[in-house]
Design a protein around this nucleic acid. Structure first.
Lengths: 206, 206, 206, 206
DNA sequence: CATGAATGAGGGTTCATTCAT
DNA sequence: AATGAATGAACCCTCATTCAT
């Protein structure tokens, strides 16, 4: 696939207070438009109008359309990673069960931050050059999970590779929570998801 | 999101031999262009040129650009469903383990039919009105899995709801196989995926 | 205006019975499509489909799209001219009043043959090279009216040029009847139109 | 007939001096192209090129092709209505004859503002959703004529309904003047039209 | 004679992006 | 810094017409 890797880094950092507000308004508007109109319906003009800003100003801070989404993706990915990372941050303080429960619960919380936005971003992410970032998010979370498992490795069944298990479980957990929270929110009592996912993890690990 | 559900049904069926070939060429070209240029780069003109057909001919059989992808999605989804369905079709003839092994193996085979195409379609599917179809594919496969589990329900641990388990496992399995085959084909020796996924399923179920 | 005078004469006359029916079906379909979709919506494909004929057959009898309308216009103009001509055909047999009454009544009848078609043809006529024909229709009817007036010239007020009067009255009458029958059919009790128009004519003439 | 009433209102008002000129150039170009190439030959590209403006600029101020004509029609209809309205504006200041003479003369003047444009607009008006406007123009002028007649009603023959008479005379007068000025400008000494039309009116009324 | 597949010029329209003010 | 007018490449799609079968 082409899309010759256009720069998506913000063009220049806002220095004054006012500009910071402008940039913020643009990012917020991007999120709204994205949710309401989808990626294809997200035109720079629309974003600018929604942000109450001239198209010229928008281009003063973002080099192109993709940069808008990229910024959003990075920010959102950062939040998600932070939430999940925090849940696994202190393996020494919790049991395996409690830590994984916190992990799953964090996953649900992360998806519920803004489900519509999460959905659209996860769908559109591959389209901008940012798939790397997405994979990286997954990889980083899997890494954190692996570290957590390593700390509790005497609880794990013998012969289990923690890195591999982390990969498997991060993938499975994310998919289940995503499907449960975003795609089929009505289908199941949301509360069933968490314990069941936890059960899946524990049984696989021990 | 708007996207007011434009019709994507093929416009008219080819009657003569000649036109059947034309339609086939168009669909094939769509797949190639899609893989090479992504959805946004898939212009009707490019497809027509690649198919060795005039733009007019393309529009004689497909009402719009989306219909091209829709056709492809339907065809591919059909193949995938068939492969997975077949693996679960005769629960009475196999043990739980053998059936699930066949299921996982079928999942891998389905993803390897045409990994690049599978990847792009699964990414773009939400964008055309076809998300319904995608969900339906998942649902149908989960249903088949549920039936299989029901047949072997005396092997399952008590208190397990087969429908729920099917949902969980279809989701997890698909995600793992997808990630393993499509997204990170290099990361793992592909052969580890299958037994490990099977292990995940069995441990969860029994 | 360009439109470099494309031939609009029917391409070849149908010889056998069957072909005559084909041509008839095409013309009828043209009228329907014209009324239902307007001139711009009258595509050759639509006409052919409505006529139950292949596009190829259509082009066997009509050299191009305009020829379809031209044929219709000619036919309709012929009917109109005939009706109005007949009303004025025997000046010696009727009084001035009766003749003009017949003329007006004939005008109304002509407009009511197929008001929707009449409307659309009168609107679209200028667009194909056929304005000449339309003007000619007017001229021929004015000529007939002039002849009628000449026969009754001793009833006319002195100083009145019959040719000029015919021009004035044909124009005025056609406009009133057109507006009354086609454009504002609801506005007036249609029965008021005829005597009033007759009054206008008589007062102008005598 | 479908033509689902596409919006023809101008898209955005020009704010700066520069853009006002752009809009004006576009409208002028539209008129020229319309006269030279007819409605079907009036492509947005041609208009833009003739206006010395990019196609994008055109679409910044007009939402679609029809809006170009609609603007022209409205402007022209406004001028015509103004001219005719002015002629009838002060019934108390003139005699019946003088007022009607002014009316007919105004009609001729209105048609001579730009005969080619008038011709093409009156032909194309029905095609865009603007027939309503056209009819409204007629109705408004008829209304003005009716008011004028009412003021002089003691000069009218008994039993004459002023509203009906206004309808009849507005229709007849417009047709005659149109035919005389636009369609057959050569046919008659133009000067004969006015007194003769006036005669027609007076005789009908008194 | 009939069919309908194939053609492709051409048109309307959008929208990311630039730049003079 | 901000504005918004201007640009034009690029795209989707239609439809009159031809011609091989």
């Amino acid at each position: 696939m082409p899309s010759v890797a256009v720069a998506t880094a913000p063009r220049k950092r806002p220095r004054q207070e006012r500009s910071r507000a402008t940039v913020e308004a643009i990012i917020t508007a991007t999120a709204h438009i994205l949710v309401e109109h989808g990626y294809d319906g997200m035109t720079t003009g629309r974003v600018a109008r929604r942000a109450g800003v001239s198209i010229g100003s928008l281009y003063q801070y973002f080099p192109n359309r993709e940069a808008l989404v990229a910024t959003l993706v990075e920010r959102h990915a950062g939040e998600v990673t932070a939430i999940l990372g925090a849940a696994l941050a202190h393996p020494e303080a919790v049991s395996l069960e409690d830590g994984l429960r916190a992990y799953v619960e964090a996953g649900v919380r992360a998806h519920r931050l803004d489900p519509s936005l999460h959905k659209i971003l996860s769908e559109q992410v591959p389209r901008i050059g940012k798939i790397a970032l997405a994979m990286d998010t997954h990889r980083r979370i899997a890494r954190a999970l692996e570290a957590f498992l390593l700390f509790h490795k005497d609880r794990l069944r013998p012969g289990l590779d923690p890195a591999f298990a982390a990969f498997i479980l991060e993938t499975a957990t994310e998919a289940i929570v995503h499907r449960g929270v975003i795609e089929c929110p009505d289908m199941l009592a949301g509360d069933a998801i968490e314990p069941e996912t936890l059960g899946l993890m524990i049984r696989y690990l021990c």
